[in-house]
Design a binder for these strands. Structure first.
Lengths: 341, 341
DNA sequence: CTGAAAGCGCTAACAG
DNA sequence: CTGTTAGCGCTTTCAG
């Protein structure tokens, strides 16, 4: 323990120290209602010297208001989510709302637990990644009566409202861009994550758009765990050994694409002439690589920003109109690894 | 709103629905005290069909117990911190404690605000990065009467206790290793972050150990913002143009070291013969690079684990002995970029 | 095994 | 401008 005083300070202590009623002390500390300058100073002085920190638990219970926004995401290790968080924080910093993060590790049951835990603090709103949840999670969210924004994905039916991109469309567009440049023998490299619905949807959109042009993926490879860069490299090597005729590699994220780039360069393969590659996310990291890998921006920061704005607006005015689906449009960045005529 | 019922459910609703007193319902829901099987079933049934989520705010106020651990870190964008978080979560998942993250952006005043905000929820413990805090922050932590673990750094005086590594020592050891391999004309590349005390301490330890052998850094370069990989590359190019005679580059983190590696390889420089390089942190990302960059493990995960264990133990038993400074010992990984005789 | 009463520390709603 | 009175929804404590 940093101190041995067993009892934390209360409003009453400040009240006694300053000779002002608890109620007035409370007013001063919250900047609510009119308080004379003199009293205010006395209270502030007393609070400061005592080192009083208000008890939000009691405050929240009494006022029935909690300035917390629950943010539920699959992981913090994937840079995508910290970037979304940054967008959210940026907006909430200008309000009196505060984000609280929960991590699900892509597990629906864990999401359910985290959600239950979070909702039991009666937050003012929830931002949750994805549109796929357990029935119980959906029931809880619906019953909570607070604004819920599902983020990152718009391919599905939101509980309340959604901000994101269509991953199916993203996959389709990348497929079209690749075909348009004349690539024909395409391999896919991704994560072994049945529960990463967004990756799955991109894959589905991708194969679907290829199929429409009569093209099929030649081969595919999936990984899980480990350094994404190393895995991207390994999978690329394996895949090329098996299918030397490939002329394009589509990676489900930029990190493995970067690993693939390393491998191809090592092998002295001409990019994008002999083989083209593309990833997904538009991560900043790519900037320093020997080639600018083609990718598609996932609009991470905008999604965070928009989601937080929606929550803030709804908290401000619960009657506000709601737009069910806010779809952002990612753009392809061709870089140097997807040839352009 | 996901629902239009204005009033969230209370224990009383479950009590009425099940015909059992609120007190007994509370017992069932918390698994406390003996309740007959029959009553328990009735209560659980009622709670489930109603979709009741307990109100922790009220519970915490009444019981004077909050199962939250405040974790205060400078940033989520630097992979180091998510990894520490993972260590913390891993331990806390087996307790009834829950981490709540606050981000300071390396700003002492923001740390103070975040801390105030967090402490006002009366958490059971605090884990905070670094040993440098504002006076007010220190006062708050001391007055809180809860366990405080300062992490990542042990070069200084902890408020309560600390778990980390000595960055000064880390810098010194790397300097010795470099000198020992015969490198003499050394450049330093780092972040322009006066407030990143750990980076500063590493730098100080580094130059100090060089000085002891009569060696001085030939040149240095600092960056801020942008893609670390790209910056590492740029700084390296700039530095080599200015000082072509350099034979070693010490980078303050692995990302910029990786960027540097890219640049050196591009220029066809022999690594580690003509120029050796080293970074810091031991990030997983390095695994996929064309060369294994020399680095030093920052013990990120262990720090998180240990810190959480300390908190859990102290919450369990507030009288427990405390070890003021728990210093972990990072090891140099030579990789392929720091020659070994 | 179950229930009734009394708060936890704060704020809403009134009175002055 | 300041104070008083009732709770917020739960748990603690003590009686059955």
């Amino acid at each position: 323990m940093a101190s041995d005083d067993p009892r934390p300070l209360t409003l009453r202590d400040v009240s006694e120290a300053s000779g002002v009623s608890e109620m007035t002390v409370s007013r001063v500390l919250r900047n609510r209602g009119d308080v004379s300058h003199a009293t205010r100073e006395r209270v502030l002085e007393a609070a400061k010297t005592l080192g009083y920190v208000p008890n939000k638990i009691a405050g929240a219970l009494a006022s029935q208001r909690v300035n917390l926004v629950a943010v539920i995401i699959p992981s913090l290790r994937n840079m995508v989510f910290p970037e979304v968080m940054a967008g959210i924080s940026g907006v909430l910093e200008n309000t009196d709302l505060q984000p609280v993060v929960g991590v699900t590790d892509y597990m629906p049951e864990k999401e359910e637990r985290v959600l239950y835990e979070m909702l039991s603090w009666r937050p003012s709103g929830v931002i949750v990644a994805g549109l796929e949840h357990t029935e119980a999670s959906i029931a809880m969210l619906k019953a909570s009566g607070i604004p819920v924004v599902e983020i990152m994905d718009t391919d599905g039916k939101p509980i309340d409202c959604a901000v994101g991109i269509s991953h199916r469309r993203a996959g389709r567009e990348m497929a079209r861009a690749i075909l348009k440049q004349g690539y024909q023998r395409i391999g896919f490299l991704g994560t072994k994550m049945p529960l990463d619905h967004r990756a799955r949807k991109r894959f589905e959109g991708f194969t679907e758009a290829l199929a429409k042009e009569g093209v099929e993926i030649v081969t595919q490879e999936f990984y899980s765990g480990g350094s994404a860069l190393a895995k991207g490299r390994e999978m690329t090597r394996t895949m090329l050994e098996r299918e030397p005729e490939l002329d394009f590699l589509y990676y489900s994220n930029d990190m493995i694409a970067a690993g693939g780039l390393m491998e191809l360069l090592d092998q002295g393969i001409d990019i994008p002439g002999q083989i083209g590659i593309a990833g997904f996310n538009g991560v900043e990291l790519l900037d320093g690589l020997p080639r600018r890998v083609a990718t598609m921006d996932a609009c991470r920061s905008e999604i965070g920003t928009k989601a937080a704005q929606v929550i803030a607006a709804r908290v401000e005015n619960p009657e506000a109109e709601i737009e069910r689906i806010m779809e952002l449009t990612p753009r392809i960045s061709y870089g140097d690894t997807l040839k352009r005529r």
